[in-house]
Design a protein around this nucleic acid. Structure first.
Lengths: 129, 129
DNA sequence: CAAGATTGAGAGTTCAATCTTC
DNA sequence: GAAGATTGAACTCTCAATCTTG
C-alpha cells in the first residue's frame, strides 16, 4: 500500500513538473481545463463542485488565476449573487500548452505498463471503489 | 493514469481519516513514527532528511507537535547549532494509537486485492522506477 | 431561511533570506 | 564559507463565520 502511495506521489511530482514548465500548477490547470471544456464561463460554485473542493478554495484559486491574467471574473446577469469565471485568450493558450505536457506524461505512463498489468490495474482500482 | 491517481487520493483520504480519529495528521504521525523507531531524539535536519522535506517544513511541523505536547525540543549538547526533537510519553501513546489505525487500513487494502493482482501491482510499481 | 461568494484562521508545503555556530 | 535552524512570503487546501441576494 505504501509503495502504491509512493508511486502515485512520484507521478504527481512528474505532472507538477510538466505543468510547471508552462507556468501552471495542477489546480490552475484543472480550472482552465473545465472552462475550456464547458466553452462558457462557469460560476465559482460550479467549478468548486466539478473539482470536488470547497467554494472558499475556488475563490482564492480564481484570485490567483486572475492575477496571472488567465481568467476573468464576470458578474452573472441572471443571479446577482453569482460570479462567473471566464477564460482569457492567454488562459486558453496556456491550457493547450498544459494539456500537451500532460499528454506526454500520460504517454510515458502507458508505455511503462504491459497490457496484462493494465488489466490488473483496472481490476484493482475498481475493487478499491 | 488518472484513475490511479484518483485511487491513491482516496486511499490517502482514508488514512487521514483514520489518523484523525486519534487526533493526528499524516505528517505528524510520520514524525512520531521516526522518533519511536529511532528510540532517541533526532535533530530537525535528520527528521527533514528522513521524511524527504525541507528543513523549514520540519521547524513548523515540530512547532505544532510541541504545541500538542507530543514532542519536546531539546538542545543538542554536542552541537549548539542543532535542536533535537524528543518524543513525550503522550506522543508515544498517540503514535501507537495511530499505528493501530493505519494497520487497519492496510489490512483492508490487502484484503481488497487478489494475489495475482498484487504481483502485477508490484511489477508495475517497480517499472515506474 | 437557502444559496452565492468572500474572509480569516489554520494545516501543510516550498523557496529565499537570515542568523548563529561550526 | 558551510551547515544548523528559523522566519517570511507564497501556494493549496479546509473549516467556520459573515455578507449579500434569492
Amino acid at each position: 500500500m505504501m509503495s502504491l502511495l509512493h508511486a502515485a506521489h512520484a507521478l504527481e511530482d512528474k505532472l507538477d513538473a510538466a505543468l510547471g514548465r508552462v507556468g501552471l500548477s495542477a489546480p490552475k490547470f484543472s480550472v482552465l481545463k473545465e472552462l475550456v471544456g464547458a466553452g462558457d464561463p462557469l460560476s465559482l460554485s460550479e467549478l468548486a463542485s466539478r473539482l470536488a473542493c470547497v467554494r472558499s478554495n475556488m475563490t482564492q484559486l480564481v484570485d490567483r488565476l486572475e492575477a496571472d491574467g488567465l481568467v476573468r471574473r464576470v458578474d452573472c446577469p441572471t443571479d446577482r449573487r453569482s460570479v462567473k469565471a471566464e477564460i482569457t485568450p492567454e488562459g486558453a493558450t496556456r491550457q493547450a500548452a498544459g494539456a500537451s505536457e500532460v499528454a506526454k506524461v500520460e504517454q510515458e505512463f502507458r508505455e511503462s505498463i504491459s497490457a496484462i498489468d493494465r488489466a490488473a490495474l483496472n481490476r484493482m482500482l475498481a475493487g478499491l471503489e
